[in-house]
Write a protein that binds this DNA or RNA. Structure first.
Length: 639
DNA sequence: GTAGGGTTAG
C-alpha cells in the first residue's frame, strides 16, 4: 500500500495554490504530503495532478497509482482517463475495459474524446468484437463522429479485427485523415491478407513515414514474399528498431536464420525485441543452442529479459532438455519477480515436464494461484498417465475442454486398452480431431495389435498431413508386430511414392554444461574409442543376462539378422547411454533427448541397463518420457 | 490546463 489517507480532506479555501502547482515542477510524494496537510487531497486539480505525477514516476507501479485513485472521493474525468490509458499501455487491456465499465456505471460522468480512443484500442487488442461494436455505437450517440482521434482509432480497431470492410467504411466517412489513420488502414489490409490492396494503398499515399514502410516490410514477409520485403526494406529512407525487427522476423519466418543473423550482426543498436526475435526465431527453426547462446549474451550485455525472452528461452531449453539451465532460468525468474500466472507459468511447467522433472513441474503447477487453461493443458499433457483430471477441470474450474484435453482423454483410454471407446470419443467430440489424437490411437493399435483401428487412424493422419513420417513408421511397426510382412513392404512403397524420408536418429546428452550429440553409427565424438569399448562391454553384460535382441522394428531393409543386430547396437541413444555411463559419476541419472520414437529393442535394452548398472536413465523421445529405473520403465511399456 | 489513435518479438 502506497499511502493511507485518514485525514478528512476538504477543498482548500485558497484558490491560488492548485493552479500554481502546474507552474513549478514538484515531486509526487511532496505534493501528496502537501495536499494532506492542507486538506486539498480531493480537490479536482490536485487529485488529477497527483495521478499524473505518480503515473509518470518510474518508481511507482500501476497498482500503486490505482490504490491512490481508489481513495479519491470523486475522481475527475482526467484521472479516469489517465488510468484507463495506463492499463492499455501496460498490456492490461482487460483491466482497462473493466475500469471503463466501472466508469460508465459508477462515475456519473460521460466519456470524452480522450477516453474513447483508449478503450477502442483496448477492444482492438483484446479482439473484443462485441464491446468494440457497442463502443462504436456510443461514439455516434455522443456525437464524436467527426473527431479525428476517435475515428482513427476505430479504423485501427477494425483493422485488428481483420474486418477491413468496416475499417474502410469508417475511413471513407472521415472528413480529414492524418498519416496515422492511413497507416492503420494499411495495417488492416496486411492483417486481412490483402497484400495487393495494401500495396495499392501504399502507392496512393502522398506522405509516408517509417511506420508505413515497416508495415509493408512486415506484410510482404508475412505472406511469404521475403525477397520483396527486403527490397522495400532497402528502399526505406529511414529505419527504426521496428523496421529492422520486422525484416529479421521475415527471414526467421522463411527459415532463413542465416540472413536474419546477418542483419542482426550489422545492427548497431538493438532493442529487447530484436533479441527476442532472434531467440524465438532460432527456437522455431530448431537451432536451440544458438537461441541459448544469445540469451546468455544479452544478459552479459546488460539487457533485461522480458516475458517473451523467458518464454522462448524456456522453450529452447525444453527442446534440448537442459535441466540445469532450466533451473537457472527458473531461479532468475523468481529473483526478478516474474509472475507465473500466464504463459510464463505454462512454459516453466512444460520445461520441467520435458526435462524429465515431473515432480518440480507439479510443484510449480500447484504454486500458481489462478490456474488458467494453459496450465492445465500443460500439466495434464505432462502427467499423461495420471488420468481423470478431465472432470475436475470441467466441474471445479469451469474450463471448456479444447482439442488437447480430448487428446489426453483419448490417450488415457488408449493406455487402458479401451480402443473402441477412444475411437468413439474421437468421433463424437465437438472439435475436429488433430494429428496428435489420431497418433495416440494409432500408437495404441500397435501395442494392442488392433490392425483395423490402426489402419483407420493411420488413414486419418495421412489425410491431415500426408508427409508425416511417424504414422507410416507406426503403421509399419504394427504390421511387423502382427507378422504381416506383406503389408510392411506396402507401407514402405507408399512412403517411397510420397517421398517421405525418415529423419536420422539423433540423441543428445548434457555433460558439464555442454550438449553432446550422437547420430546412429556416429564415430565423430572425441571419445569414440571409449564409447565403442563400453558398447562391447554392454553387449557382454546383456548376453550374460540372456538378452536376445528384438529385430522386428528395424525399418531399413537389411538382409540377414546379424546386420540388423549391428544396426540396433549403434542406435544413437545407445551411444549416448554409453557416453553417459563412462562420463557421468555413478548415481547421477543419465538424461537423454531423442528426436525419434524409441524402438522396441532400445527400450528393453535400456530397461536391462538401468538394472545392470543400477542407474536411472531418462530418455525423452519425440512423444513421451521414459524413466528407466531398476529394470522397468515409467511408461509401463506403452509408448 | 496534465490526456487520445498506427509498425516489430511472445
Amino acid at each position: 500500500m502506497l499511502l493511507q489517507v485518514t485525514a478528512s480532506s476538504l477543498p482548500s479555501k485558497s484558490n491560488l495554490y492548485p493552479f500554481q502547482i502546474y507552474k513549478n515542477p514538484i515531486e509526487p510524494a511532496q505534493l501528496l504530503a502537501l495536499s494532506l496537510k492542507t486538506a486539498t487531497f480531493n480537490h479536482p486539480l490536485i487529485s488529477s495532478r497527483l495521478i499524473s505525477l505518480y503515473t509518470h514516476s518510474k518508481s511507482t507501479s500501476l497498482d500503486h497509482v490505482r490504490s491512490l485513485f481508489d481513495q479519491f472521493q470523486q475522481p475527475t474525468l482526467f484521472s479516469w482517463n489517465t488510468l484507463i490509458k495506463s492499463y492499455v499501455q501496460n498490456q492490461r487491456s482487460q483491466e482497462s475495459l473493466f475500469m471503463f465499465l466501472d466508469f460508465m456505471t459508477l462515475s456519473g460522468l460521460m466519456p470524452d474524446v480522450f477516453t474513447l480512443p483508449c478503450v477502442i484500442k483496448a477492444c482492438g487488442r483484446l479482439m473484443a468484437l462485441k464491446e468494440g461494436g457497442q463502443i462504436h455505437g456510443l461514439v455516434f450517440k455522443l456525437g464524436f463522429g467527426s473527431d479525428l482521434f476517435v475515428q482513427g482509432s476505430l479504423v485501427g480497431m477494425y483493422s485488428k479485427f481483420k474486418d477491413i470492410g468496416s475499417a474502410r467504411k469508417v475511413f471513407d466517412q472521415m472528413t480529414e485523415r492524418d498519416l496515422v489513420t492511413w497507416n492503420s488502414l494499411l495495417d488492416g489490409y496486411v492483417k486481412d491478407g490483402e497484400i495487393e490492396l495494401a500495396m495499392e494503398l501504399f502507392d496512393e499515399m502522398t506522405e509516408r513515414d517509417v511506420v508505413s514502410w515497416t508495415v509493408m516490410v512486415d506484410g510482404l514477409s508475412k505472406c511469404g514474399r521475403v525477397d520483396d520485403a527486403r527490397k522495400v526494406f532497402d528502399e526505406m529512407p529511414r529505419r527504426n528498431f521496428a523496421s529492422w525487427n520486422a525484416m529479421i522476423n521475415g527471414y526467421m519466418r522463411a527459415g532463413d536464420f542465416i540472413s536474419a543473423r546477418g542483419l542482426f550482426d550489422v545492427m548497431e543498436d538493438k532493442d529487447i525485441i530484436t533479441w527476442n526475435s532472434m531467440i524465438a526465431g532460432y527456437e522455431h527453426n530448431g537451432r536451440c543452442s544458438e537461441a541459448l547462446k544469445l540469451f546468455t549474451k544479452l544478459l552479459n550485455l546488460g539487457y533485461v529479459p522480458t516475458h517473451s525472452t523467458l518464454v522462448s528461452t524456456l522453450s529452447a531449453i525444453s527442446w534440448s532438455a537442459l535441466l540445469s539451465k532450466g533451473r537457472w532460468v527458473h531461479s532468475y525468474m523468481v529473483k526478478n519477480g516474474h509472475k507465473l500466472d500466464g504463459v510464463l507459468g505454462t512454459s516453466l511447467i512444460e520445461m520441467y515436464c520435458k526435462c524429465g522433472s515431473i515432480e518440480t513441474a507439479l510443484k510449480v503447477f500447484e504454486s500458481i494461484p489462478n490456474k488458467k487453461l494453459g496450465h492445465w493443458t500443460t500439466i495434464i499433457a505432462g502427467l499423461g498417465t495420471h488420468g481423470r483430471y478431465f472432470n475436475m477441470m470441467i466441474k471445479d474450474y469451469k474450463i471448456e475442454p479444447t482439442v488437447e484435453h480430448y487428446g489426453c482423454l483419448v490417450d488415457i483410454l488408449c493406455r487402458a486398452g479401451h480402443l473402441e471407446e477412444a475411437k468413439n470419443v474421437i468421433e463424437s467430440m465437438p472439435l475436429k480431431p488433430n494429428k496428435v489424437i489420431w497418433m495416440s490411437l494409432l500408437s495404441a493399435s500397435r501395442i494392442y495389435k488392433k490392425v483395423e483401428i490402426g489402419e483407420y487412424a493411420a488413414q486419418s493422419v495421412t489425410e491431415i498431413d500426408p508427409s508425416f513420417i511417424e504414422s507410416y513408421v507406426l503403421l509399419s511397426n504394427m504390421y511387423a508386430a502382427t507378422g504381416n510382412w506383406d503389408k510392411v513392404s506396402r507401407v514402405r512403397d507408399a512412403m517411397r511414392k510420397t517421398g517421405v524420408k525418415k529423419d536420422a536418429g539423433c540423441s543428445l546428452i548434457e555433460y558439464r554444461d555442454e550438449v553432446h550429440e550422437f547420430i546412429a553409427g556416429d564415430k565423430s565424438h572425441p571419445r569414440t574409442h571409449e564409447i565403442y569399448h563400453k558398447l562391447s562391454k554392454i553387449r557382454e553384460r546383456l548376453k550374460s543376462v540372456g538378452y536376445v535382441a528384438d529385430k522386428s522394428q528395424v525399418l531399413l531393409h537389411i538382409e540377414g539378422d546379424d546386420e540388423k543386430e549391428t544396426e540396433l547396437e549403434s542406435h544413437s541413444e545407445r551411444l549416448a547411454i554409453a557416453f553417459g555411463l563412462i562420463s557421468l559419476k555413478p548415481g547421477i541419472p543419465i538424461r537423454i533427448v531423442k528426436n525419434l520414437r524409441v524402438c522396441n529393442d532400445c527400450h528393453s535394452v535400456t530397461k536391462h541397463l538401468s538394472k545392470i548398472y543400477d542407474r536411472e536413465i531418462i530418455v525423452r523421445d519425440n512423444s513421451r518420457f521414459h524413466h528407466f529405473k531398476h529394470g522397468s520403465c515409467s511408461c509401463m511399456d506403452y509408448w
